[in-house]
């Protein structure tokens, strides 16, 4: 298995053997509607999987994301960090599931899906699920849907940063844990944010 691959969904499924690792990332840009379906089996001992993904939406997009990570072998590691900004009339659903099979002891799995709504009519539904059938596992998951912090916004504006710029700064920092490494990812995200923050 290769490292750091960028996937062009709709669907991708992988089986990782002992000691193998896989890094995936995806992004959904303004105007794109997508169904993303990722399924990863950690089938050999010590395999690891990392997913980073983000979406920036501000029109009529419909985005459905489904991630299933199945820990089948002992001492595998997985992380998922998916953050998104939804404006306009965008509709997003995130359905993330981590399954830890019997015998997959020493599993270390995490999943976060954080969202910021920048319009009143955007909709995000997020359902993280854990199914754990093994002992001695470390699993965490978190999901949030919120709005930009008004106190931060005013503080930045009071220093002369225009409202739109202030929002872009806040959103870039919010997205950064989910951006694939490197300057290009951040620049692309920033350009997309400027498009939706009119």
């Amino acid at each position: 298995m290769g490292h750091g691959r960028y996937i062009e969904p709709p669907a991708a499924s992988y089986v990782l053997g002992a000691g193998e690792s896989l890094e995936l990332s995806f992004s959904v840009m303004p105007g794109e509607s997508k169904d993303i379906d990722i399924s990863v089996d950690l089938a050999g001992e010590g395999a690891s999987f990392d997913l980073k993904g983000y979406y920036i939406l501000g029109e009529q997009e419909k985005v459905n994301i489904r991630v299933r990570v199945h820990h089948k072998a002992p001492r595998c590691r997985s992380s998922q960090t998916v953050n998104g900004v939804a404006g306009g009339n965008a509709e997003v659903s995130f359905d993330g599931r981590i399954i830890v099979a019997p015998g997959a002891d020493g599993t270390d799995a995490s999943q976060t899906n954080r969202n910021v709504l920048v319009s009143d009519s955007a909709r995000v539904g997020t359902t993280p699920q854990l199914e754990i059938y093994a002992d001695d596992v470390k699993c965490s998951h978190g999901a949030t849907v919120g709005k930009l912090n008004e106190e931060e916004l005013f503080y930045m504006r009071s220093r002369g940063i225009p409202e739109r710029e202030a929002k872009v700064l806040q959103l870039i920092s919010f997205l950064s844990p989910a951006l694939p490494g490197g300057e290009n990812g951040a620049q692309e995200a920033e350009a997309a944010l400027r498009r939706i923050m009119v």
């Binding site: 931060e152 005013f154 009071s158 220093r159 002369g160 940063i161 225009p162 409202e163 700064l169 806040q170």
Partner: peptide, 30 residues
Amino acid sequence: EQRSWAGLFLSFQYPVEIPGVTISAFMKAA
């Protein structure tokens, strides 16, 4: 922001924390 550009500055009683935005980036934008 226009008030700031005109030369008004308020030192906040409770300065606001902005996670993820460095002082350097903050001042650069300002």
